[in-house]
Amino acid sequence: MKQFQYTRPSTQQMALDAISKPGAKIIAGGTNLVDLMKRGVTAPDKLVDINHLPLKNITPTHTGLHIGSLALNSVVSENELVLQKFPLLSMALKAGASPQLRNMATVGGNMMQRTRCTYFYDTTMPCNKREPGTGCGAMEGFNRMHAIFGTSNQCIAVNPSDMCVGLAALDAVVIIAGRKGERRIPFTEFHRLPEDHPEIDNHLAKDELIIGVEIPDNNFAKNSYYLKVRDRQSYAFALVSVAAALDIDNGVIKKARLAMGGVAHKPWRLFDAEKWLIGKPISEENFKQAAQMAMAGAKGYEYNSFKLNLAPATINEALKHAAGLV
């Protein structure tokens, strides 16, 4: 039987040392990692349990809100500051998984969760993400849940997270600790597209630790909405989800933020549509046009072409909700 070590560092430095060893892997809530270990997708030699590090805090900074990487998804979604400043994040979190899972899942773990592509999970199937060079089972297989943006000929998997869609829309910044110190990267640049290396989900180095995310203050609280379309009302991953945030002045859009889930290998920000919406009055016509614009470059596969229609419909619907038109 595959044996593995388990350590529980009490300081960040110890954690960083531990994860720099070959075969070491961080475990936080374990809701994704343990599943992957059970299915044989990953087999770490050493689990570094970071749950005892002081990274659970949710604290205001002078420019926004800092959320520690070990803050639980359930705690963040109910946090008063989050609800008051960034209700979009709370909505996105509550749209994910189930209360039981959210009670275990952490912010860092959520960011690092791997795709739910069935070919990735089934070790008897080809998958370039799990085993580079074996091919992509989904490309010509059952790809109903798969990406329509930013795919490569190696991989069409999607990032399954809801929280990340909210954070991408809110211009969050990821704070990362490494042995050489801290660095910060914009949330939208944390995850990556598959290109020729689908086995790499994001830009976190193996010996780095996410310590938190920071969300800058904004004026979106009044007019934001997370809409998730799924096959059942709870406990299902998104077919398509949209995080929409608007800063509206007198019926005119001053700023807009839009991100989509369930459509790409990373939370998919709709920068062009956002830009186009600036200065436009809130109206279904404008929302529909923005939604169409957002679809540029989308490409469907055998079973997921419906997303080409569902995605703009969901963008429009989310914007209507955010603008108070529904």
Partner: peptide, 10 residues
């Protein structure tokens, strides 16, 4: 996770 049956919310 992939074979859906109704949950309470449905």
């Amino acid at each position: 996770a992939d074979y859906h049956i109704p949950v309470n919310a449905d």
